[in-house]
Amino acid sequence: MIESTPVSVDVLVLRFDPGARTVLLGVAPRAAEPFRGELALPGVLLGLGERLREAGTRAVVGKLGLPSAALTGIGQLRTFDEPSRDPRGPTLSIALWATANSAGEGVRWCTLDEVPPLAFDHNRIVADCAPLLADLLWRHVEFTAGLMGNGFTTAQALDATEALTGDRPYPANLGRTMERVPGLRRTAEHAAALPKGGRPPSLWRWD
């Protein structure tokens, strides 16, 4: 008789920090063994009859301490099935993305290219999912809106794109890409004037 393999849900929680001009990933110390005290992605075992979004929200709230109201989107990335990924025995890990609009308390935020050593196979999960996150930006409405919020400038869009892809696109090219995103529009509004003068950047908003 083949025994069922437990399924864990591990979440890559992202937020855009306008001050730091980059996208940040949230990790926190584990409160229990194995790897007690080591940094890790928020994760939980999938409960009986529980949906992935429900488990992902439970992981973020319980492990990162972010309120559920801070979550602005959540979705699935891919599955990791390395048998030795958990010292307690074989488990499947379903990686999810989540976007947040709050830094919370006790969360360690890091850039995707400076992720510290993490428990389990979480560094591999981040590395393998990073290109998938880059593909979601400006293609997946829930992800993009959750990450960028309702009002943002072209400069902030360039910062987020560079943080996820590693390359800074030409503003005109990115503007054309953004104009094709359903529900996103360039407004007649402008952000605050630049300190040294010049034309203030226009704002983008969701319908």
Score class of each variant (00 low, 15 high):
Arg199Ala: 14
Leu184Trp: 06
Phe16Ser: 01
Asn173Val: 14
Arg36Cys: 12
Ala32Glu: 15
Leu194Trp: 01
Pro90Ile: 02
Gln76Thr: 14
Asn173Met: 10
Asp135Ala: 15
Phe35Tyr: 15
Asn123Leu: 06
Trp97Glu: 09
Pro29Phe: 09
Gly89Trp: 11
Cys129Met: 03
Trp109Ile: 04
Val141Asp: 13
Pro87Ser: 04
Phe143Tyr: 13
Leu66Met: 02
Gly197Glu: 05
Cys129Asp: 06
Glu105Met: 04
Ala28Glu: 02
Gly197Ala: 10
Pro131Ala: 06
Met178His: 10
Pro6Cys: 07
Arg168Ala: 06
Val181Gly: 09
Ala145Gln: 15
Thr144Pro: 08
Glu3Asn: 08
Glu33Asn: 10
Ile94Arg: 14
Met178Lys: 14
His122Tyr: 06
Asp17Lys: 02
Ile94Cys: 04
Leu66Ile: 02
Ala130Gly: 00
Leu41Tyr: 06
Leu77Trp: 05
Thr111Cys: 03
Asp121Glu: 13
Thr57Leu: 13
Ile94Ser: 04
Asp135Asn: 12
Leu92Gln: 06
Val44Phe: 00
Phe16Tyr: 15
Leu112Asn: 01
Asp10Gly: 09
Pro195Asp: 08
Thr111Gly: 14
Leu46Tyr: 02
Thr187Phe: 10
Thr72Ser: 11
Met148Tyr: 01
Thr187Gln: 08
Asp167Phe: 08
Asn101Ser: 15
Asp10Lys: 00
Arg205Ala: 15
Asn123Lys: 05
Leu46Ser: 03
Gly151Arg: 14
Pro200Asn: 13
Met1Cys: 07
Gly146Ala: 09
Ala95Arg: 01
Leu194Glu: 10
Ala192Met: 08
Arg124Thr: 03
Pro117Ala: 12
Leu203Gly: 00
Phe143Val: 09
Arg58His: 08
Arg185Ile: 09
Ala32Trp: 08
Arg58Ile: 04
Glu142Ile: 07
Thr177Met: 11
Leu46Ile: 07
Leu66Phe: 00
Leu137Phe: 05
Ala31Tyr: 03
Leu52Lys: 05
Ala31Met: 11
Arg78Tyr: 11
Gly62Asn: 12
Arg108Asn: 01
Ala31Asn: 08
Phe35Cys: 05
Pro169Val: 08
Pro201Lys: 01
Arg180Ala: 15
Thr99Ala: 12
Pro90Ala: 14
Thr79Ile: 14
Ala119Ile: 04
Asp17Leu: 04
Arg85Ser: 13
